[in-house]
Design a protein around this nucleic acid. Structure first.
Lengths: 197, 197
DNA sequence: GCCTAGAAGCAACAAAATCGCATTAAGGTG
DNA sequence: CACCTTAATGCGATTTTGTTGCTTCTAGGC
């Protein structure tokens, strides 16, 4: 998943990978992302720089790997008894995490060192999974549910667009408004469109 | 706007800036973005590397400046006689330009070397301006119009999100669908919300 | 308990970024 | 229009980073 070939995942390689990732996390906290250099990470990790250059290519790809790990959701969305409540809570938390300074930094890093889009795809997959969990619960309850793609377009996309492209603040009220507009639309114009794979 | 302090914009500074930007455009076409280096750009531009390092900081910020210039729309959206037609045409063209390989590259570059979000903000401002032109015309015709923010959330954001985070293809039908859903919503749930400045 | 091949270490090398100092030229001033 | 101030560039020395060939080590398969 993370480094280039990902052959031979056990033993020493795994130790090196973990050691390097840990070094990145520590050093980002200590000296800041901007002061980070590959030799610095290598020293902290007890590894030679050439190992990092060979496995990750450059600092950006390494940071991208670390960022994606941190963007992985740790728990499933809470079950609050209804689709609307679940979506509200999830969207609020999602916005809060992503719009926070560290969240913004991780998003940028994840996109940055990602030549083939693998890591970016992983980020969107995380959000899609979380939404799927919420939708599956609603289906089990017998509620009518909108399509996952609609929710991504109406909730996730606006949040991420504003984080990346627009300077202004984002608050929980905005998240709730997006949810309102998204679930309102489910019977009007949701339809069988844009399957995206 | 582009370089750091932007004091003393006339004369030599302006010539250097234009020369460096031109060198970047030429070399990207010739050797590709990945092979580009600051010393290479400096040589082509007839400038010393330290000049580039001092004015732009690093290659990414320079590429970001060049990318934003290229993302500036060259013409106003076409006037086709109705809001719906204008939006359809604009969204199709916007998607086509942004989702094309060079468009994707410019977007990435613009976001990449942009510590303070200035260039990203400029990109979203371009889209907002284009939308404003379309809306102003519709108002002049007496058509009911949705809010600009709603169109950004419903049309621009999904397109950009998919370009950045999702691997799949994007086609004109998707753009039209987004427009349909956006204009449908204008009387239902558009309301006085999320002003964002 | 051997092989084998992928991964890491090491060191010399090449290329890049940084920095102090000298020089140039914009833009303002009298 | 000559002069002055100061931002911006040029230049070169120095430091740091990135690359490469080769050796050594070890995980995984026999």
């Amino acid at each position: 998943m993370s480094p280039r070939p990902m052959a031979r995942p056990g033993g020493r390689s795994a130790r090196v990978q973990e050691s390097v990732h840990a070094a990145v996390r520590e050093l980002v906290a200590e000296v800041g992302r901007d002061a980070l250099t590959v030799p610095m990470v290598a020293t902290r990790a007890g590894v030679t720089p050439s190992t990092i250059y060979r496995r990750w290519g450059d600092l950006q790809e390494l940071l991208s790997d670390v960022a994606v790990e941190r963007l992985r959701p740790e728990t499933d969305p809470a079950d609050l008894g209804s689709l609307r409540a679940d979506l509200d809570a999830w969207a609020e938390q999602f916005l809060e995490e992503m719009a926070s300074p560290p969240g913004r930094a991780y998003i940028r890093d994840a996109l940055l060192g990602d030549p083939d889009g693998t890591n970016a795809g992983q980020c969107s997959a995380y959000a899609a999974q979380q939404i799927d969990v919420v939708l599956a619960r609603a289906v089990r309850r017998g509620e009518p549910v909108p399509e996952r793609e609609l929710l991504i377009d109406r909730i996730v996309a606006p949040i991420m667009y504003r984080i990346l492209f627009r300077p202004g603040r984002l608050d929980a009220a905005y998240a709730r408004e997006l949810v309102t507009n998204a679930v309102c639309a489910q019977q009007t114009a949701a339809g069988a469109r844009h399957p995206q794979r």
